[in-house]
Design a protein around this nucleic acid. Structure first.
Lengths: 216, 216
DNA sequence: TAAAATTAATTAAACGTTTGTTTAATTCAA
DNA sequence: TTGAATTAAACAAACGTTTAATTAATTTTA
């Protein structure tokens, strides 16, 4: 049903390599010859296996959006019952998911703003819907148990959460510039990632529990 | 010194029209013939007036980043003394600035993530530095007067603020889809913009004043 | 002020590359 | 021996840019 992509190793290899070039140069600026060179295959193989450069992109998107939806589903069914812990888990998961898929995240960030309809638009739309649902579940649980305030718009909450994380990653180099830190240092990157997570957790706790008097 | 662009009416016209096409299709996917058609000029005029397609982009960036820096400077020197009011003004200004420059904002969002150095990178870096400074001034004033908590990292605060606003605009269509609202309705757009501003103000107030007991 | 000279603006056509894709021949594996 | 995989070469179309000729505007000169 479309999600059964039935991809062989060579196809997956080409998808992996081309994704990296797309992330580096952008989809439009990447030629099929760039891809062929990176993946060390003949140019004709892209058309042979995927039909076109556009369909190669679609295959990459289908692959990654499906993977992400599955990961998100796993959190929904996780047995963390404390609402604040659930929000923390959510923040950790999103940040980690992007770290693990930096290239795809970069590519998607760039392409999503121009899309108006079509396959790619639908893939992204469905994934975003999953995200909102996940946040909604956590928020409603917190409200039910009385520790979250009532006046919360889940859409805006998703926007500030995903928006903050996205902006952090797409502006990481500018941030390193501002702090006069080399952008390649793995130690600093791990440190600043923890700081980001912490900042978001504190900020969300402050907002979600705003006006609630702690009765413990 | 570089900021004196000395542009004539025809150049400004071409910049305005090409910016719209860039925003719609992306820079790489836009041909000089696309631009010529939109601006109703001969293709050769782009090279004649700007030297190249790339330098046309640079002219657009220089023009807009300068304008934005000036607007930001105006807030810094504004005589709003209440720190919370200053934060509110900041949020309003950012949102309004993007609304007034939708096309450029879209273009910049797409291009900034791929830049590693060069003219465009520097333009954006300097503008971001201005943003951080502006936020820093407001935060420090709030901390000095005792109504803001001490544990605030200005970089992260900028990331969540700008990131949220950016994400809102680049995902507006997805949001309308989710709420089953037509994306073109001006009335709804004005309404949801107010909601965004309000959401951000409440969220920032909650975070900035977190742990501070109101002594009024 | 009117004609001449000079500069700026505009044009259609052509330039050499690069683009995504296809072809037809060949190699490889079952 | 059949079908899939791989190749180098060719394809037309589109790309950004330049050219050389022409028109429009401005300045200089008489």
């Amino acid at each position: 049903m479309g999600s059964e992509q039935g991809l062989n190793d060579k196809q997956l290899w080409i998808m992996k390599q081309s994704l990296e070039v797309f992330a580096e140069k952008g989809f439009d600026a990447t030629s099929v010859r760039d891809i062929a060179q990176r993946a060390d295959v003949n140019v004709a193989m892209i058309s042979y296996y995927f039909g076109s450069k556009e369909k190669l992109l679609e295959a990459i998107f289908l692959n990654h959006t499906n993977n992400m939806k599955n990961k998100i589903g796993a959190i929904i069914h996780s047995r963390v019952h404390d609402p604040l812990q659930k929000v923390d888990l959510l923040i950790d998961t999103y940040v980690d998911a992007i770290v693990e898929n930096r290239s795809f995240h970069l590519l998607m960030m760039r392409e999503q703003v121009l899309l108006k309809d079509g396959l790619l638009y639908n893939y992204i739309r469905d994934m975003k819907q999953h995200n909102r649902t996940l946040i909604e579940v956590a928020v409603k649980a917190g409200q039910k148990s009385g520790i979250f305030q009532k006046n919360i718009d889940v859409s805006f909450l998703a926007i500030t959460l995903i928006g903050s994380i996205n902006h952090f990653f797409s502006n990481y180099k500018y941030l390193c510039d501002a702090k006069a830190v080399p952008a390649e240092g793995d130690a600093y990157q791990a440190e600043v990632l923890e700081k980001l997570k912490n900042h978001l957790k504190v900020m969300y706790k402050a907002f979600l529990t705003y006006g609630i008097t702690n009765k413990k």
